[in-house]
Design a protein around this nucleic acid. Sequence first.
DNA 1: CCTGCTTATATAGAGGCATGATATAAAACT
DNA 2: AGTTTTATATCATGCCTCTATATAAGCAGG
Lengths: 167, 167
Amino acid sequence: MEYTQQSGAREPDAPATREEVAAALEQLAFLAVRHLTNRDISFTAASTLGRLSREGPSRLTALATDEGVTQPSMTQLIQRLERQDLVTRVDDPHDGRVVLVAITDAGRELLAERRRGRTNRLAELLATLSPEDEQALADAVRAATPAFQRLVESAARARKSPGDTAS
Amino acid sequence: MEYTQQSGAREPDAPATREEVAAALEQLAFLAVRHLTNRDISFTAASTLGRLSREGPSRLTALATDEGVTQPSMTQLIQRLERQDLVTRVDDPHDGRVVLVAITDAGRELLAERRRGRTNRLAELLATLSPEDEQALADAVRAATPAFQRLVESAARARKSPGDTAS
DNA sequence: CCTGCTTATATAGAGGCATGATATAAAACT
DNA sequence: AGTTTTATATCATGCCTCTATATAAGCAGG
Protein backbone atom coordinates (compact mmCIF):
# COMPACT_ATOMS: atom_id res chain seq x y z
CA MET A 1 0.00 0.00 0.00
CA GLU A 2 2.08 2.92 -1.10
CA TYR A 3 -0.60 5.19 -2.47
CA THR A 4 -2.05 7.84 -0.22
CA GLN A 5 -5.73 7.80 0.48
CA GLN A 6 -6.78 11.39 -0.01
CA SER A 7 -10.22 12.45 0.99
CA GLY A 8 -10.30 16.16 1.72
CA ALA A 9 -11.49 19.02 -0.52
CA ARG A 10 -9.23 19.69 -3.50
CA GLU A 11 -7.91 22.92 -4.88
CA PRO A 12 -9.26 23.79 -8.31
CA ASP A 13 -5.94 23.20 -10.08
CA ALA A 14 -4.94 20.12 -8.19
CA PRO A 15 -4.18 17.09 -10.36
CA ALA A 16 -6.79 14.38 -10.59
CA THR A 17 -6.40 11.96 -7.72
CA ARG A 18 -6.60 8.24 -8.09
CA GLU A 19 -9.97 8.45 -6.43
CA GLU A 20 -11.16 10.85 -9.11
CA VAL A 21 -9.87 8.62 -11.85
CA ALA A 22 -11.40 5.63 -10.13
CA ALA A 23 -14.78 7.32 -9.87
CA ALA A 24 -14.71 8.33 -13.52
CA LEU A 25 -13.68 4.89 -14.69
CA GLU A 26 -16.42 3.44 -12.54
CA GLN A 27 -19.07 5.58 -14.17
CA LEU A 28 -17.66 4.68 -17.54
CA ALA A 29 -17.91 1.03 -16.62
CA PHE A 30 -21.57 1.37 -15.67
CA LEU A 31 -22.32 3.01 -18.99
CA ALA A 32 -20.49 0.28 -20.81
CA VAL A 33 -22.26 -2.50 -18.99
CA ARG A 34 -25.70 -0.96 -19.36
CA HIS A 35 -25.51 0.11 -22.97
CA LEU A 36 -22.88 -1.95 -24.69
CA THR A 37 -23.92 -5.34 -23.38
CA ASN A 38 -25.75 -7.79 -25.60
CA ARG A 39 -28.17 -10.05 -23.82
CA ASP A 40 -27.67 -13.01 -26.16
CA ILE A 41 -24.76 -14.68 -24.42
CA SER A 42 -23.09 -14.10 -21.07
CA PHE A 43 -20.02 -12.04 -20.40
CA THR A 44 -17.91 -15.12 -19.76
CA ALA A 45 -19.24 -16.75 -22.90
CA ALA A 46 -18.35 -13.73 -25.00
CA SER A 47 -14.96 -13.36 -23.38
CA THR A 48 -14.21 -17.04 -23.89
CA LEU A 49 -15.23 -16.89 -27.53
CA GLY A 50 -13.03 -13.85 -27.99
CA ARG A 51 -10.12 -15.65 -26.41
CA LEU A 52 -10.63 -18.70 -28.62
CA SER A 53 -10.78 -16.40 -31.59
CA ARG A 54 -7.52 -14.64 -30.67
CA GLU A 55 -5.53 -17.56 -29.30
CA GLY A 56 -6.83 -20.61 -31.12
CA PRO A 57 -7.93 -23.98 -29.72
CA SER A 58 -7.39 -24.23 -25.98
CA ARG A 59 -7.81 -26.67 -23.14
CA LEU A 60 -10.84 -26.48 -20.93
CA THR A 61 -8.86 -25.90 -17.73
CA ALA A 62 -6.74 -23.22 -19.35
CA LEU A 63 -9.89 -21.41 -20.41
CA ALA A 64 -11.34 -21.73 -16.93
CA THR A 65 -8.33 -20.23 -15.18
CA ASP A 66 -7.90 -17.52 -17.80
CA GLU A 67 -11.54 -16.52 -17.51
CA GLY A 68 -11.50 -16.72 -13.76
CA VAL A 69 -14.22 -19.33 -13.40
CA THR A 70 -14.06 -22.87 -12.04
CA GLN A 71 -13.48 -25.84 -14.28
CA PRO A 72 -17.04 -27.19 -13.89
CA SER A 73 -18.40 -23.78 -14.89
CA MET A 74 -16.26 -23.83 -18.01
CA THR A 75 -17.32 -27.40 -18.81
CA GLN A 76 -20.96 -26.35 -18.69
CA LEU A 77 -20.33 -23.17 -20.63
CA ILE A 78 -18.56 -25.08 -23.37
CA GLN A 79 -21.41 -27.59 -23.48
CA ARG A 80 -23.89 -24.77 -24.03
CA LEU A 81 -21.70 -23.10 -26.64
CA GLU A 82 -21.33 -26.46 -28.36
CA ARG A 83 -25.09 -26.89 -28.47
CA GLN A 84 -25.26 -23.52 -30.21
CA ASP A 85 -22.54 -24.56 -32.68
CA LEU A 86 -20.31 -21.72 -31.56
CA VAL A 87 -17.44 -24.00 -30.55
CA THR A 88 -16.32 -27.56 -31.27
CA ARG A 89 -14.41 -30.03 -29.15
CA VAL A 90 -11.51 -32.07 -30.46
CA ASP A 91 -9.66 -34.79 -28.60
CA ASP A 92 -5.96 -34.17 -28.21
CA PRO A 93 -4.07 -37.01 -29.93
CA HIS A 94 -1.09 -36.51 -27.60
CA ASP A 95 -3.02 -36.71 -24.34
CA GLY A 96 -6.16 -38.74 -23.94
CA ARG A 97 -7.38 -36.61 -21.05
CA VAL A 98 -7.52 -33.25 -22.71
CA VAL A 99 -10.23 -31.77 -24.86
CA LEU A 100 -9.31 -28.92 -27.14
CA VAL A 101 -12.01 -26.32 -27.64
CA ALA A 102 -12.06 -24.39 -30.88
CA ILE A 103 -14.28 -21.58 -32.15
CA THR A 104 -16.42 -22.28 -35.20
CA ASP A 105 -17.21 -19.99 -38.11
CA ALA A 106 -20.59 -19.36 -36.52
CA GLY A 107 -18.77 -18.35 -33.36
CA ARG A 108 -16.62 -15.88 -35.26
CA GLU A 109 -19.67 -14.50 -36.97
CA LEU A 110 -21.41 -14.01 -33.64
CA LEU A 111 -18.41 -12.10 -32.31
CA ALA A 112 -18.40 -9.88 -35.38
CA GLU A 113 -22.13 -9.32 -35.07
CA ARG A 114 -21.84 -8.35 -31.44
CA ARG A 115 -19.05 -5.95 -32.20
CA ARG A 116 -21.11 -4.31 -34.93
CA GLY A 117 -24.06 -3.97 -32.60
CA ARG A 118 -22.02 -2.36 -29.86
CA THR A 119 -20.35 0.05 -32.23
CA ASN A 120 -23.67 1.08 -33.70
CA ARG A 121 -25.28 1.69 -30.34
CA LEU A 122 -22.33 3.72 -29.19
CA ALA A 123 -22.33 5.68 -32.42
CA GLU A 124 -25.98 6.54 -31.87
CA LEU A 125 -25.16 7.67 -28.37
CA LEU A 126 -22.21 9.76 -29.51
CA ALA A 127 -24.35 11.30 -32.22
CA THR A 128 -26.49 12.92 -29.52
CA LEU A 129 -23.50 14.94 -28.29
CA SER A 130 -22.42 18.32 -29.57
CA PRO A 131 -19.52 18.15 -32.02
CA GLU A 132 -17.29 19.78 -29.38
CA ASP A 133 -18.18 17.18 -26.79
CA GLU A 134 -17.68 14.37 -29.22
CA GLN A 135 -14.32 15.79 -30.20
CA ALA A 136 -13.31 16.14 -26.56
CA LEU A 137 -14.23 12.56 -25.89
CA ALA A 138 -12.41 11.30 -28.95
CA ASP A 139 -9.28 13.26 -28.05
CA ALA A 140 -9.36 11.97 -24.50
CA VAL A 141 -9.70 8.40 -25.69
CA ARG A 142 -6.75 8.89 -28.02
CA ALA A 143 -4.64 10.39 -25.29
CA ALA A 144 -5.52 7.77 -22.72
CA THR A 145 -5.30 4.68 -24.88
CA PRO A 146 -1.58 3.81 -24.46
CA ALA A 147 -1.68 4.25 -20.69
CA PHE A 148 -4.96 2.42 -20.47
CA GLN A 149 -3.52 -0.39 -22.54
CA ARG A 150 -0.77 -0.84 -20.00
CA LEU A 151 -3.31 -0.67 -17.21
CA VAL A 152 -5.22 -3.56 -18.75
CA GLU A 153 -2.04 -5.58 -19.11
CA SER A 154 -1.13 -4.88 -15.53
CA ALA A 155 -4.60 -5.98 -14.49
CA ALA A 156 -4.19 -9.21 -16.42
CA ARG A 157 -0.92 -9.89 -14.64
CA ALA A 158 -2.55 -9.12 -11.30
CA ARG A 159 -5.06 -11.89 -11.94
CA LYS A 160 -2.35 -14.46 -12.52
CA SER A 161 -0.44 -13.77 -9.31
CA PRO A 162 -3.04 -13.04 -6.66
CA GLY A 163 -1.29 -10.51 -4.47
CA ASP A 164 -4.65 -8.86 -4.06
CA THR A 165 -6.28 -7.50 -1.00
CA ALA A 166 -8.93 -10.08 -0.31
CA SER A 167 -12.41 -9.14 -1.42
CA MET B 1 -29.39 6.90 -38.95
CA GLU B 2 -27.48 10.05 -39.64
CA TYR B 3 -24.02 9.01 -38.59
CA THR B 4 -21.61 7.71 -41.19
CA GLN B 5 -20.21 4.24 -40.82
CA GLN B 6 -16.53 4.58 -41.54
CA SER B 7 -14.54 1.46 -42.11
CA GLY B 8 -11.58 2.17 -44.37
CA ALA B 9 -7.94 2.78 -43.45
CA ARG B 10 -7.35 6.05 -41.60
CA GLU B 11 -4.72 8.69 -42.08
CA PRO B 12 -2.28 8.96 -39.18
CA ASP B 13 -3.61 12.34 -38.06
CA ALA B 14 -7.27 11.51 -38.47
CA PRO B 15 -9.42 12.20 -35.45
CA ALA B 16 -10.51 9.27 -33.34
CA THR B 17 -13.46 7.57 -34.94
CA ARG B 18 -16.49 6.36 -33.10
CA GLU B 19 -15.18 2.89 -33.69
CA GLU B 20 -12.04 3.76 -31.77
CA VAL B 21 -14.10 5.14 -28.91
CA ALA B 22 -16.26 2.04 -28.98
CA ALA B 23 -13.24 -0.22 -28.82
CA ALA B 24 -11.85 1.72 -25.88
CA LEU B 25 -15.13 1.55 -24.00
CA GLU B 26 -15.33 -2.13 -24.70
CA GLN B 27 -11.94 -2.75 -23.22
CA LEU B 28 -12.91 -0.64 -20.26
CA ALA B 29 -16.07 -2.65 -19.77
CA PHE B 30 -14.04 -5.84 -19.75
CA LEU B 31 -11.62 -4.39 -17.23
CA ALA B 32 -14.48 -3.21 -15.08
CA VAL B 33 -16.33 -6.49 -15.07
CA ARG B 34 -13.21 -8.47 -14.40
CA HIS B 35 -11.64 -6.31 -11.73
CA LEU B 36 -14.24 -3.98 -10.29
CA THR B 37 -16.99 -6.50 -9.77
CA ASN B 38 -17.73 -7.83 -6.32
CA ARG B 39 -19.06 -11.32 -6.36
CA ASP B 40 -21.42 -10.73 -3.47
CA ILE B 41 -24.45 -9.44 -5.35
CA SER B 42 -25.34 -9.14 -9.01
CA PHE B 43 -25.02 -6.09 -11.21
CA THR B 44 -28.76 -5.51 -11.26
CA ALA B 45 -28.91 -5.94 -7.49
CA ALA B 46 -26.18 -3.36 -6.96
CA SER B 47 -27.68 -0.99 -9.48
CA THR B 48 -31.12 -1.31 -7.87
CA LEU B 49 -29.71 -0.68 -4.41
CA GLY B 50 -27.91 2.38 -5.74
CA ARG B 51 -31.12 3.65 -7.26
CA LEU B 52 -33.04 3.12 -4.04
CA SER B 53 -30.29 4.95 -2.20
CA ARG B 54 -30.40 7.91 -4.57
CA GLU B 55 -34.12 8.12 -5.24
CA GLY B 56 -35.78 6.77 -2.13
CA PRO B 57 -38.57 4.17 -1.81
CA SER B 58 -39.90 3.05 -5.16
CA ARG B 59 -42.50 0.76 -6.65
CA LEU B 60 -41.51 -2.65 -7.88
CA THR B 61 -42.64 -2.03 -11.44
CA ALA B 62 -40.84 1.29 -11.58
CA LEU B 63 -37.64 -0.41 -10.47
CA ALA B 64 -38.11 -3.14 -13.06
CA THR B 65 -38.51 -0.75 -15.98
CA ASP B 66 -35.72 1.53 -14.77
CA GLU B 67 -33.33 -1.38 -14.44
CA GLY B 68 -34.41 -2.92 -17.70
CA VAL B 69 -35.59 -6.23 -16.31
CA THR B 70 -39.06 -7.77 -16.22
CA GLN B 71 -41.37 -7.34 -13.27
CA PRO B 72 -41.11 -10.98 -12.12
CA SER B 73 -37.32 -10.69 -12.17
CA MET B 74 -37.52 -7.61 -9.98
CA THR B 75 -39.98 -9.32 -7.65
CA GLN B 76 -37.54 -12.17 -7.13
CA LEU B 77 -34.56 -9.87 -6.81
CA ILE B 78 -36.35 -7.84 -4.14
CA GLN B 79 -37.28 -11.05 -2.33
CA ARG B 80 -33.63 -12.05 -2.23
CA LEU B 81 -32.50 -8.60 -1.13
CA GLU B 82 -35.16 -8.67 1.55
CA ARG B 83 -33.89 -12.01 2.83
CA GLN B 84 -30.48 -10.37 3.17
CA ASP B 85 -31.98 -7.39 5.00
CA LEU B 86 -30.74 -5.00 2.34
CA VAL B 87 -34.22 -3.66 1.52
CA THR B 88 -37.61 -3.58 3.20
CA ARG B 89 -41.10 -3.60 1.74
CA VAL B 90 -43.84 -1.27 2.90
CA ASP B 91 -47.45 -1.31 1.78
CA ASP B 92 -48.63 1.91 0.21
CA PRO B 93 -51.49 3.29 2.33
CA HIS B 94 -52.95 5.07 -0.71
CA ASP B 95 -53.06 2.05 -3.00
CA GLY B 96 -53.48 -1.47 -1.73
CA ARG B 97 -51.82 -2.96 -4.79
CA VAL B 98 -48.45 -1.32 -4.57
CA VAL B 99 -45.46 -2.30 -2.52
CA LEU B 100 -42.85 0.34 -1.83
CA VAL B 101 -39.30 -0.93 -1.66
CA ALA B 102 -36.82 0.95 0.51
CA ILE B 103 -33.12 0.46 1.17
CA THR B 104 -32.07 -0.38 4.73
CA ASP B 105 -29.07 0.87 6.66
CA ALA B 106 -27.41 -2.46 5.95
CA GLY B 107 -28.07 -1.86 2.26
CA ARG B 108 -26.43 1.56 2.42
CA GLU B 109 -23.47 0.10 4.24
CA LEU B 110 -23.09 -2.58 1.60
CA LEU B 111 -23.06 0.06 -1.13
CA ALA B 112 -20.43 2.06 0.72
CA GLU B 113 -18.35 -1.06 1.28
CA ARG B 114 -18.52 -2.01 -2.38
CA ARG B 115 -17.51 1.46 -3.45
CA ARG B 116 -14.55 1.44 -1.09
CA GLY B 117 -13.47 -1.92 -2.40
CA ARG B 118 -13.68 -0.86 -6.04
CA THR B 119 -11.84 2.36 -5.45
CA ASN B 120 -9.07 0.61 -3.56
CA ARG B 121 -8.60 -2.06 -6.20
CA LEU B 122 -8.50 0.52 -8.93
CA ALA B 123 -6.08 2.66 -6.97
CA GLU B 124 -3.80 -0.37 -6.58
CA LEU B 125 -4.02 -0.94 -10.31
CA LEU B 126 -3.24 2.69 -11.07
CA ALA B 127 -0.29 2.53 -8.73
CA THR B 128 1.34 -0.04 -11.02
CA LEU B 129 1.54 2.51 -13.83
CA SER B 130 4.43 4.82 -14.50
CA PRO B 131 3.89 8.35 -13.21
CA GLU B 132 3.64 9.55 -16.82
CA ASP B 133 0.96 7.01 -17.68
CA GLU B 134 -0.95 7.79 -14.55
CA GLN B 135 -0.76 11.49 -15.31
CA ALA B 136 -1.92 10.89 -18.88
CA LEU B 137 -4.88 8.91 -17.63
CA ALA B 138 -5.77 11.52 -15.03
CA ASP B 139 -5.55 14.33 -17.58
CA ALA B 140 -7.70 12.44 -20.06
CA VAL B 141 -10.30 11.74 -17.40
CA ARG B 142 -10.39 15.40 -16.43
CA ALA B 143 -10.72 16.52 -20.03
CA ALA B 144 -13.42 14.01 -20.86
CA THR B 145 -15.55 14.29 -17.76
CA PRO B 146 -17.95 17.09 -18.82
CA ALA B 147 -18.65 15.54 -22.21
CA PHE B 148 -18.93 12.13 -20.67
CA GLN B 149 -21.37 13.40 -18.10
CA ARG B 150 -23.64 14.57 -20.88
CA LEU B 151 -23.22 11.26 -22.66
CA VAL B 152 -24.41 9.43 -19.57
CA GLU B 153 -27.45 11.67 -19.29
CA SER B 154 -28.23 11.15 -22.92
CA ALA B 155 -27.89 7.43 -22.42
CA ALA B 156 -30.30 7.51 -19.50
CA ARG B 157 -32.83 9.33 -21.66
CA ALA B 158 -32.33 6.82 -24.46
CA ARG B 159 -33.31 4.01 -22.12
CA LYS B 160 -36.61 5.67 -21.27
CA SER B 161 -37.73 6.21 -24.87
CA PRO B 162 -36.67 3.14 -26.82
CA GLY B 163 -35.97 4.56 -30.25
CA ASP B 164 -33.15 2.05 -30.51
CA THR B 165 -32.19 -0.15 -33.36
CA ALA B 166 -33.31 -3.55 -32.20
CA SER B 167 -30.57 -5.79 -30.89
C1' DC C 1 -73.86 -3.72 -6.17
C1' DC C 2 -71.97 -6.34 -9.80
C1' DT C 3 -69.49 -6.91 -14.06
C1' DG C 4 -65.57 -6.06 -16.51
C1' DC C 5 -61.03 -3.45 -17.53
C1' DT C 6 -56.66 -1.93 -15.97
C1' DT C 7 -52.81 -1.87 -12.79
C1' DA C 8 -49.54 -3.92 -9.35
C1' DT C 9 -47.53 -7.72 -7.68
C1' DA C 10 -46.88 -12.79 -7.15
C1' DT C 11 -46.26 -17.58 -8.67
C1' DA C 12 -44.88 -21.38 -11.74
C1' DG C 13 -41.81 -23.45 -14.88
C1' DA C 14 -37.70 -23.33 -17.63
C1' DG C 15 -32.94 -22.29 -18.78
C1' DG C 16 -28.39 -19.87 -18.27
C1' DC C 17 -24.63 -19.35 -15.20
C1' DA C 18 -21.89 -19.96 -11.25
C1' DT C 19 -20.40 -22.69 -7.16
C1' DG C 20 -18.24 -26.85 -4.19
C1' DA C 21 -17.86 -31.69 -3.80
C1' DT C 22 -16.99 -35.66 -6.06
C1' DA C 23 -16.35 -39.17 -9.89
C1' DT C 24 -13.81 -40.98 -13.82
C1' DA C 25 -10.07 -41.75 -16.72
C1' DA C 26 -5.61 -40.98 -18.61
C1' DA C 27 -0.80 -39.82 -17.62
C1' DA C 28 3.16 -39.74 -14.71
C1' DC C 29 5.91 -41.12 -11.07
C1' DT C 30 7.67 -43.90 -7.97
C1' DA D 1 2.03 -52.55 -10.24
C1' DG D 2 0.42 -48.96 -7.24
C1' DT D 3 -0.01 -44.21 -6.13
C1' DT D 4 -0.49 -39.59 -7.24
C1' DT D 5 -1.44 -35.96 -10.28
C1' DT D 6 -3.90 -33.92 -14.09
C1' DA D 7 -7.97 -33.15 -17.16
C1' DT D 8 -12.56 -33.36 -17.60
C1' DA D 9 -17.32 -34.63 -16.28
C1' DT D 10 -21.30 -35.07 -13.16
C1' DC D 11 -24.27 -33.78 -9.25
C1' DA D 12 -26.70 -30.86 -6.26
C1' DT D 13 -27.55 -26.16 -5.14
C1' DG D 14 -28.52 -21.24 -5.66
C1' DC D 15 -28.81 -16.90 -8.26
C1' DC D 16 -30.85 -14.54 -12.03
C1' DT D 17 -33.59 -13.98 -15.89
C1' DC D 18 -37.32 -15.03 -18.93
C1' DT D 19 -42.52 -16.02 -20.49
C1' DA D 20 -46.97 -17.13 -19.18
C1' DT D 21 -50.31 -16.93 -15.89
C1' DA D 22 -52.65 -15.98 -11.38
C1' DT D 23 -54.26 -12.98 -7.66
C1' DA D 24 -55.92 -8.94 -5.96
C1' DA D 25 -56.82 -4.11 -5.61
C1' DG D 26 -58.62 0.03 -7.90
C1' DC D 27 -61.77 1.96 -11.34
C1' DA D 28 -65.91 2.67 -14.52
C1' DG D 29 -70.43 1.85 -16.13
C1' DG D 30 -74.78 -0.38 -15.82
